[in-house]
Design a protein around this nucleic acid. Structure first.
Lengths: 217, 217
DNA sequence: ACCTCAATGTCGTCT
DNA sequence: AGACGACGTTGAGGT
């Protein structure tokens, strides 16, 4: 990885145009061709960037980063280079995540009764022609229940579930399960006869006690 | 901005859990409290990060970055520090963009006939109780036409426009205009009686000739 | 504080 | 290569 701190001016042309007037910034050249421009504030997002595959051409006072295919390019005019160092980082280790939507789906597949009624799992990722239903279950009367799982459910999740229900075309109820369901999503779900359940992954796993309620059921 | 290159191990806990086993990485501490971890590959996204406001506690062989409010934290175990430098970058200059959705909307407001029929603009950002319609127009018969503008239109754009049309509650057609309309969006739009138009900002501005068609209309 | 929508979204996954 | 959905989405703007 090469790290250049320089006073520079930058022009991006491609999907749109973006201009950065002269200032001191960090230019980051990664081993795989990735290029990032960061400044000293505003976390996470680079001001400018290009993802691989790229072609990098450097002259004395300018650097051009181009996409190998397509019309995107970054032109950097270098006014003053304050630092220029390279580090060999070798291969990095992979990032392992836990607690994403997939984990929630798996845990609910294992214990569908956590959805608040006597459900039996029929299939995970039940296929329809517009995509898979997260969990397809049957209730105690043998009725079909399609469950959409989200980490955070917005109005879009309700519409997604409704599209499935339209396609399934039969007596099939919908249940929306998420760690957090936005108010508007709840409202729309209610209007469309979809039940909402908020679940907590840590509780499902037995890692944490369910929240104490002052006036239980 | 402080740049540390170090062999380290990192644990994130908060909205989910994520672990990075020991490897050499770049740790970036920005002046505003932002913290980023980057790797020598895989552009754009940091492996781990924390946006301000943060609290940073450093001891000899460990750094902890916490959110000032809430339960999110990053624990970095430092095995070997290969480099540790700081740069004063001063205030950076702002990024100026051109060609985003807003620019497309403005250009279409200026020449609504580019939408392929004789439309007259009534109002930009026409208010409804669930948000503004991008362009409200009238056609040559005096009928109302709501136009949703996107840079790239997906199925969500169709749903969004439909929600507006429901609310407007009257004879009002819908038109979806975008630089690129995804196939599924076109299909759903057609099914709901919404016309689709693909437009090109550069052509609208007269900066580029319209593409030649082999068999013009 | 909350919600909505845009983003050069990016990134993985599957067809 | 294109389409689709998740993302610790992030970030901006409005109420």
């Amino acid at each position: 990885m090469r790290l250049v701190v320089a006073r520079c001016e930058i022009l991006y042309t491609g999907r749109l145009t973006a201009r950065l007037s002269e200032a001191v910034r960090l230019l980051m050249f990664k081993a795989d061709g990735s290029f990032l421009v960061h400044d000293d504030a505003g976390g996470y997002k680079p001001l400018n960037w290009m993802t691989p595959p790229t072609v990098i051409e450097a002259s004395d006072h300018a650097i051009v980063v181009r996409k190998r295919k397509g019309d995107e390019r970054l032109e950097i005019r270098l006014v003053e280079i304050l630092s220029d160092v390279a580090h060999d980082m070798g291969d990095s280790a992979a990032l392992h995540k836990d607690g994403v939507e997939r984990d929630l789906q798996e845990e609910l597949a294992r214990q569908p009764r956590a959805l608040g009624e006597e459900l039996a799992l029929v299939r995970r990722e039940w296929p329809t022609d517009i995509g898979p239903v997260d969990l397809m279950c049957r209730d105690e009367d043998g009725g079909w229940v399609a469950v959409e799982v989200k980490r955070i459910a917005t109005i879009d999740a309700v519409e997604q579930l409704c599209r499935y229900l339209e396609r399934i075309d039969g007596a099939c109820r919908g249940v929306l399960a998420a760690q957090k369901i936005k108010l508007q999503a709840k409202t729309l779900a209610e209007a469309r006869g979809i039940r909402c359940v908020e679940v907590d992954l840590a509780v499902l796993r037995g890692e944490r006690e369910p929240e104490l309620t002052l006036f239980p059921g």
